[in-house]
Every structure is written in structure tokens, then in C-alpha cells.
Design a protein around this nucleic acid. Structure first.
Lengths: 218, 218
DNA sequence: TAGATTGTTAATCGATTAACAATC
DNA sequence: TAGATTGTTAATCGATTAACAATC
């Protein structure tokens, strides 16, 4: 077992997936699983799984395996899914609404407390039972409600202006759907990117490879 | 220079980002850049950049650097952005519509040729000037139009049934917004996942770390 | 106890960084 | 030519895999 702060990002990135698989096992009323079984279900090596899980302390039991429910809970703990970080969405266009409506924030450690847009015409519209606020009210809202993270659903061009303001207002992290590289600008802050365009291009490359070399896939 | 098929996925995943940065340089009328300059803009080492770009053959010139426009074009080529893979969207809910409306498929090697939903009430509605089709018409549509990839914007529970059908109908790859692990089920096919839930959980972890150990960030 | 499976160390593999000769 | 910067090899670092003793 190593210090929690020292856990590598490679391990962390696998945790949500473990969490998902374990959740499914719970639904199926399976209450123990060995690293070998889990490895074949997930397409990882058993060794990697044991290595990963052991970063956080021994949840397994020799000769038995892992207790599914316990492990699921523990990974949730590690990820901090029991938190309730106050989040606001910037941009109430289609993307902002989808995120607002479908994300199950509560199950993932967040709490959505506001949605903002710069279009006057949006103001007041209900999204997930919450009125869209005009961006002019951002300062006041932040002083009163102290949001901790912002979810950026705006065009790339508008990004820096608003993020600078948000940082001044105390925002401590971004979930970034914008095609801009915020992390460089705010070195201290967590910035989690969802670059859909990049994902699509990577997909394009893989399709091309697959169609040109139909054999060499794994 | 190494064989194109042997280029590692780590390199490929960085290409869209290079492409984006180079595109911005072009907009600013900058026509040459050294690996060192680019490295400081992108937060990578110059060494890594030279290593990456050299996988595809020497685009640089000693003592000069890289020709921005040439390099941009070349990376586009490598990614296959000049392709026009025929794509269909499965699921015309909020997510499906956002994707349909905002993705700039043409610039990223794809061509959107159809949108499907199982809700009768959706059928006929226009999304990006394209009528939503009822899922019952999928077979016929595929036989006639030969889509190559499917973009999955449906709930996880519905996924396997429809993807099995799609594979039978000749679909060769998935851009997967579903919370399910398709890659394991179709080992030969490219599956590019966008797991928003996982991303949010990773973000949660990072926020938690940041707030618990405010010093130890980079 | 015997069998199973973990926790953990050591070996391997791959990716990144450093260094520098080649060359524009 | 001299200076700059690449292409490329070697060194380092980190992540994954293999192996096995510990132990339930």
C-alpha cells in the first residue's frame, strides 16, 4: 500500500470503470469476485487489477477474492463520490442542457446549483427544474452561493474571458467541454477535458487504419 | 521513421491536439515553429514533439523548425480527416441532437447520413435539416446507404441489442456515448468511447485531492 | 489440511526525456 | 560560416506483467 497522494493518474483513470463493473455485479447479486474473473470480464490482466486495488490497501482476502459490495463502496470513497461539490454550468445551449439533464451529479460527487447563459432570451427558461440565469448575475450568485467548480459548455472563443472571471470568483476546477486548453492557463486547478472533436479525430484514424489494414487489429 | 501501422496509440492520441494548435497558429499567420516554441505553448517537452512528429517522416528542417501549414496538413492526412466515412446516429434525444448539430463531421473525416430513434413521436422531426427516422427502417436504410460507423446516443441498457444488429448490418466501428463496454464484445471493431460519467468521477477525485492537499498540485 | 487467491517483489516492456551529431 | 534546430540514439522513468511466498 502506498500513500494515497502518490497514486498515479493511470490507476485513477481506471477506477471509474472498476466502479461501473462492480455496480453491475451488485445488480446481479454477485458478492465475491476474484481478480482473475474480473480481469476476463474487463479485458485487463489479473495482475494489474491486484496491483491497482492494492494501492488503497488490501480489500481482498487470500483464497477468497474481493467482496464486491465492499470494494464498490471503497472505490466510491476513494473517488470522493460522497462529496457534494457545488457546480454551475456555463452555457445553456443544447450541450449545457444535456449535461444538466442527464448527468446524475449527485451520484458522482457533485451538486448542480446554477445554469448561466449570456443570451437574454434564455433567462428564466427551466432546465432540470432550474431557471437559466443571465451571465450578468454571475458575480452576485457566486458571492452568495460559492460554487466550487464550473462546467464549460460554451464556444472555445468565449472561454478565456469567462474562465478568468470564474477563477477570480473562487472557482477551483473546470469540467471543460470547450476546445481550448485551460490547464496551461490555470496550472494549479484541476481541469478535466472532454474534447469531443479530438475523440472524433482519433476515431477517424482508427477507422482508417482498420479499413486499410483489416487484419492487423486486436 | 517507423512503419505507420506501428505507431503507438499514445502518439495518435496527441495528434488531434497538435492539429488544433497548428490550426490556431495558421489563423495567426505564423508559418514556422520550432519544437521548443511549440513545446512551451502546449506544455510538452520539445523532445517528445520531435519524437512524435518523426514517426511520420521528417517534416522539420534543421536550423529552421517546422512549416506550420505543411505540418497541419500532414497531420490531417495521417488522421484521415479527408475521409468521408458514412455515419449514422442512434438515438435522437438531447445528446443525439447536440452531436448531430455541433460536431463538424466533414472537417473530421465523417459524413452524417442518418439519425434514428425508436420513439414514434420523434420520426420526421428535423435535426440539422435531416428527418429523424424510426428505428424500424434501419435495415432497409443500411442496405441502401451502407453506413460505416454508428454513433451511439442511447441508454446503456438498450446498447447490446442494437449494436448486435448494427454489426450484422455491416457497421464497422462505434463512437460510443453509452455507458457500456462495447470493445470487449466486438474485438475486431474500433470502438471510441466517450464515457462522460467516468470523466466526471475522475474530475471528482481530482477536486477532492486538490481541496485536501492544496499544496501538492502541479 | 488442500486449494485458491491475494499481496508484493522482481522482470519486462514501453513511453518519455536527454543528449548530441547531422545539417539546414 | 555560425547559429539554430532537427533527427535519432541512448538513458531514464514509469507502468504493466510475471512469479511466488504468504495466508485465508
Amino acid at each position: 500500500m502506498i500513500k494515497r497522494e502518490d497514486i498515479s493518474i493511470s490507476v485513477i483513470k481506471r477506477l471509474p470503470r472498476y466502479y461501473r463493473f462492480l455496480g453491475e455485479l451488485i445488480k446481479k447479486d454477485i458478492d465475491r469476485i476474484s481478480s482473475r474473473e474480473l480481469s476476463s470480464k474487463m479485458g485487463l490482466t489479473a495482475s494489474l487489477i491486484r496491483q491497482d486495488l492494492n494501492c488503497f490497501g488490501g480489500f481482498g482476502q487470500q483464497g477468497y477474492g474481493y467482496n464486491v459490495k465492499l470494494l464498490h463502496e471503497e472505490i466510491g470513497q476513494i473517488l470522493g463520490l460522497d462529496s457534494s461539490f457545488r457546480a454551475i454550468i456555463i452555457g445553456a445551449g443544447n450541450l449545457g442542457r444535456v449535461i444538466a439533464t442527464h448527468m446524475d451529479f449527485e451520484k458522482r460527487g457533485f451538486q448542480l446549483i446554477g445554469i448561466f447563459d449570456k443570451k437574454e432570451s434564455m433567462a428564466g427558461q427551466l432546465v432540470r427544474g432550474m431557471p437559466v440565469r443571465h451571465i450578468d448575475g454571475l458575480d452576485e450568485f457566486c458571492r452568495e452561493n460559492l460554487p466550487q467548480v464550473a462546467i464549460l459548455c460554451i464556444p472555445a472563443e468565449a472561454a478565456f474571458e469567462i474562465t478568468d472571471a470564474l477563477v477570480r470568483l473562487g472557482i477551483q476546477g473546470f469540467w471543460n467541454f470547450t476546445h481550448s486548453d485551460l490547464a496551461l492557463r490555470y496550472p494549479g486547478l484541476p481541469v478535466e477535458n472532454v474534447h469531443l472533436g479530438d475523440s472524433l479525430m482519433t476515431f477517424c484514424y482508427r477507422m482508417k487504419e482498420k479499413l486499410e489494414h483489416p487484419v492487423s487489429d486486436r
